[in-house]
C-alpha cells in the first residue's frame, strides 16, 4: 500500500497547474489583406525591426494586368503576392508620371487585371522582441519564435509593445505615477485599475500596463478608445494592456510578483496573441516557487497563498455541491480546507 506521505505528494498533482515561465514563447501577429509583410520565413528579427506595414483603411483597386496566354510573368503572379506598383508593370523602365496602379496585395484576377488590396495610410508593426520568423502568410499574419522567456496572461489588448518595467501599487499608485517621467515604461499595477487610468497612462507616453485583473467593461472602453485613435489617422504609438488573471479582482500571485520584481528596470515586451510578457531571463535566475506552494483562486480565501498539506477527499461545499478538497496551510498560519479546483500552483 502506498504511504500517506506519498499519496499527499501525488495528490498535489491534481491541483490545476500554471506554467510560470515559457522558455520558448511563440507569438502571432495578425495581418489583413493589403498589409505588406517585410520579413520572410527563417529571418531573424531584432527588437524594433519592421515586421509589416498595416493598412489603416484598406480598399480594393486595379492592379497589374493578368499575363496573357503568350506572356509570362517573372515570376508568375498569384493571389497573395505583393504588387509594388506601377513602374514594374511589364518589366519596363520606371516612368516619371502618376503611377497607373498603386502598390498592394494581389487579391484575384478580374476582367484581365488583378484586383489588389491597397491603402493610403500605413502603420509599421515593429518587432517587440527579437526572434525568428516561423511563418509569414500574406493576408493572415506572422508567427515568430521569440528569444527569451515569457510569462503568460489570460487576455491582452492593443499593439505589441516594449518598454522598461516599473511597478505601481494600486490605482492610486498608478495615478501618482502618471507623468512624463514614466514615458516609455511598462507599468505593473498590483491592485484595482480602470480604463480611465489606463488611457491616461497611454497619453503620458507609457508603453503598456500589466494588471492582475481588469473588468471586461474597462477592456472594451480601452479598445474603443484605441479604435477612435486609429480613426483619427494619427500615428499610433505601440501600447498594450496585459491581464494576468481575469476579470475578478485578485492581487498578483506571489511567484509572479517575485518574477516581475526581479525584472524591474529592465526591458520587457508585451505581445497580444497569445497574451505574453516577454523578457530575457533575469540573472541571477530567481528560484522557482516551492513545489507545495499553492494559491487560492476562488471562494472566500481568494488571493491568499500557502502550502499544500494534503488531499481532503470529497467534501460538501455551499449549495450542496460535492467537490474534491484539499487542506492547505495559509501564510499566516491558518489551516483551511478549500475546493481543489479553487487552487492553482505554479510549475
Amino acid at each position: 500500500m502506498t504511504s500517506d506521505v506519498e499519496t499527499d505528494e501525488r495528490d498535489l498533482e491534481l491541483v490545476p497547474a500554471r506554467r510560470l515561465l515559457d522558455p520558448e514563447p511563440i507569438a502571432r501577429f495578425e495581418l489583413a489583406p493589403g498589409d505588406r509583410i517585410l520579413v520572410a520565413e527563417g529571418d531573424r528579427v531584432s527588437v524594433g525591426m519592421g515586421l509589416a506595414e498595416r493598412q489603416r483603411e484598406p480598399r480594393v483597386d486595379d492592379g497589374p494586368p493578368v499575363a496573357g496566354a503568350t506572356e509570362v510573368d517573372h515570376p508568375a503572379l498569384r493571389a497573395g503576392d505583393w504588387w509594388p506598383g506601377d513602374g514594374h508593370e511589364g518589366g519596363g523602365p520606371l516612368r516619371r508620371r502618376h503611377p497607373r496602379s498603386p502598390a498592394g496585395e494581389l487579391l484575384h484576377p478580374e476582367d484581365g487585371r488583378w484586383r489588389i488590396a491597397t491603402g493610403s495610410h500605413v502603420d509599421v508593426l515593429e518587432a517587440p522582441a527579437a526572434g525568428t520568423v516561423l511563418e509569414a502568410i500574406p493576408g493572415r499574419g506572422l508567427t515568430i519564435r521569440l528569444a527569451g522567456s515569457a510569462l503568460a496572461g489570460t487576455s491582452a489588448a492593443g499593439i505589441p509593445t516594449r518598454g522598461r518595467l516599473e511597478r505601481a501599487i494600486g490605482e492610486t499608485g498608478l495615478r501618482g505615477a502618471l507623468d512624463v517621467g514614466r514615458a516609455g515604461a511598462i507599468l505593473v499595477v498590483d491592485g484595482r485599475i480602470d480604463s480611465e487610468a489606463i488611457i491616461r497612462a497611454r497619453a503620458t507616453g507609457v508603453r503598456g500596463v500589466i494588471a492582475s485583473s481588469l473588468a471586461g467593461k474597462d477592456l472594451r472602453d480601452l479598445q474603443a478608445s484605441e479604435a477612435r485613435q486609429r480613426a483619427s489617422l494619427q500615428p499610433l504609438a505601440p501600447f498594450a494592456v496585459l491581464v494576468l488573471d481575469g476579470t475578478a479582482r485578485r492581487p498578483l500571485a506571489g511567484p509572479v510578483a517575485d518574477l516581475l520584481g526581479s525584472l524591474e528596470g529592465r526591458e520587457v515586451a508585451i505581445v497580444v496573441d497569445p497574451p505574453l510578457v516577454v523578457f530575457n531571463p533575469p540573472s541571477p535566475a530567481i528560484p522557482p516557487p516551492g513545489r507545495d506552494r499553492v494559491r487560492v483562486m476562488g471562494g472566500d480565501l481568494v488571493g491568499r497563498e500557502g502550502r499544500w498539506l494534503r488531499g481532503a477527499g470529497l467534501r460538501r461545499f455551499p449549495a450542496g455541491v460535492l467537490l474534491e478538497a484539499a487542506t492547505i496551510a495559509l501564510d499566516d498560519g491558518e489551516v483551511a480546507t478549500v475546493a481543489l479546483a479553487d487552487l492553482e500552483r505554479f510549475v
Binding site: 490545476p16 489570460t154 483562486m297 476562488g298 471562494g299 461545499f317 449549495a319 450542496g320 475546493a339 479553487d342
Partner: peptide, 15 residues
Amino acid sequence: DLRLSPWLEAHGDGA
C-alpha cells in the same frame, strides 16, 4: 472567467 476556469468557484453562488 467561467470560460477561462470552468471549475473555479463551483460552489455557492458559482454553482
